[in-house]
């Protein structure tokens, strides 16, 4: 069975790029706080979502709607209304993290498949059984915490198809359980759909072309002249610990699993997710093209070889211009 290539789109132009370059499915969000990339100017209005569905279906591509934030008790209507909009627009699946929304979708739109979002934090067959039995999910996206051997084990025992992250900015914490952003800024991926939001970021220019970057007054990092500066998410800053100054949690880097493709396919992974709804159409086009070629090559009879030009193209668009096998590779841990 071939693995499905699931690509991101934060705008109609990015969607067009993904369709053009051969995505099997595109995931997107509505323009509100119901999804984890609730950035200004990003995402789709209900009308744009309906257009996206028709455009994708003409090309034989699927549209998944990400509804992967957690509503609080007084604000359930916005999320439920978003499910109504998406189901009525004819999306091919809803990607949901929160259990009351999975329940709502299952009861009101049983014909629309439900995928468990990575924000649902399910890392074991038992947790996957919970979501399968309670809400009839047909697929789950695994948090980026398991090693390849552990992913293989989960695939063997999972009651649902497994989707994994293949490429893009790397969250190193268990998704859905990281409060670093809200600890500093009051806003979180879980509740607000944002991580380290831009309006809390403050850059300071220092003598000698040095720069400092703060997140709500907390110094995240300082860059020498010419040093490439990355976006100040809390997990990717340089701090002092045990007398040393270093990236105490993680370097700015992107996940890249190209070299693992044969093993992921062998494990029975059903879909590969490309991160980056916040990135522009050029990123989506470039990354989708590379992964389409790689997945097509995997289908050929010859042994799979990662082409250097693929790696070069992906590294070019990666965070900090570097990539890692991340948690799939045991020494990363």
């Amino acid at each position: 069975m071939t693995m499905e290539l699931v690509c991101p789109a934060g705008s109609p132009a990015a969607l067009a790029a993904a369709l053009e370059q051969g995505a099997d499915a595109v995931y997107l969000g509505l323009r509100n706080s119901t999804n984890a990339r609730a950035f200004p100017g990003l995402n789709f209005t209900p009308e744009a979502l309906a257009d996206a569905v028709s455009q994708a279906h003409v090309r034989g591509c699927k549209i998944y709607l990400a509804l992967n934030t957690y509503p609080t008790s007084d604000h359930m209507a916005l999320w439920k209304n978003s499910i109504d909009i998406a189901a009525n627009a004819g999306v091919d699946a809803l990607i949901i993290a929160e259990m009351s929304l999975l329940d709502y979708a299952a009861r009101h739109y049983p014909g629309t498949p439900r995928h468990l979002s990575v924000q649902g934090s399910a890392t074991s067959p038992a947790a996957l059984r919970f979501f399968h039995e309670q809400f009839g999910i047909t697929r789950a996206v695994l948090p980026r915490v398991l090693s390849l051997a552990q992913v293989e084990r989960v695939c063997e025992k999972s009651p649902v198809g497994i989707e994994v992250f293949a490429f893009g900015s790397l969250c190193i914490m268990v998704e859905g359980r990281c409060h670093l952003s809200s600890y500093v800024t009051g806003q979180s991926p879980n509740c607000h759909g944002v991580c380290s939001p831009a309006h809390h970021v403050h850059w300071e220019e220092l003598p000698g072309d040095q720069r400092r970057v703060r997140l709500n007054k907390i110094l995240i990092d300082e860059f020498k002249a010419g040093e490439s500066a990355s976006y100040p998410t809390v997990c990717k800053g340089r701090y002092l610990a045990g007398g040393a100054l270093f990236y105490a949690l993680e370097e700015p880097t992107s996940l890249n699993t190209l070299s693992l493709l044969p093993r992921l396919a062998e494990a029975g992974v059903v879909a590969l997710k490309i991160e980056g709804r916040q990135r522009g159409p050029a990123y989506v086009a470039k990354v989708t093209r590379v992964w389409r070629q790689a997945l097509d090559a995997l289908q050929q009879q010859e042994p799979f070889v990662v082409r250097p030009e693929w790696q070069a193209a992906l590294t070019h668009v990666a965070e900090g211009h570097q990539t890692t096998l991340g948690p799939y590779h045991r020494p990363w841990h």
Partner: peptide, 29 residues
């Protein structure tokens, strides 16, 4: 402290205390 534990408790019909990492943000959940 994880939904794996919730599921095992549920399968064995054992009442449980929901720890702080379960992401219960509303009355329906």
């Amino acid at each position: 402290n994880d939904l794996s534990a919730v599921q095992l408790c549920h399968e064995h019909q054992i009442p449980f205390i929901a720890g702080p990492t379960l992401n219960i943000y509303n009355h329906e959940a």
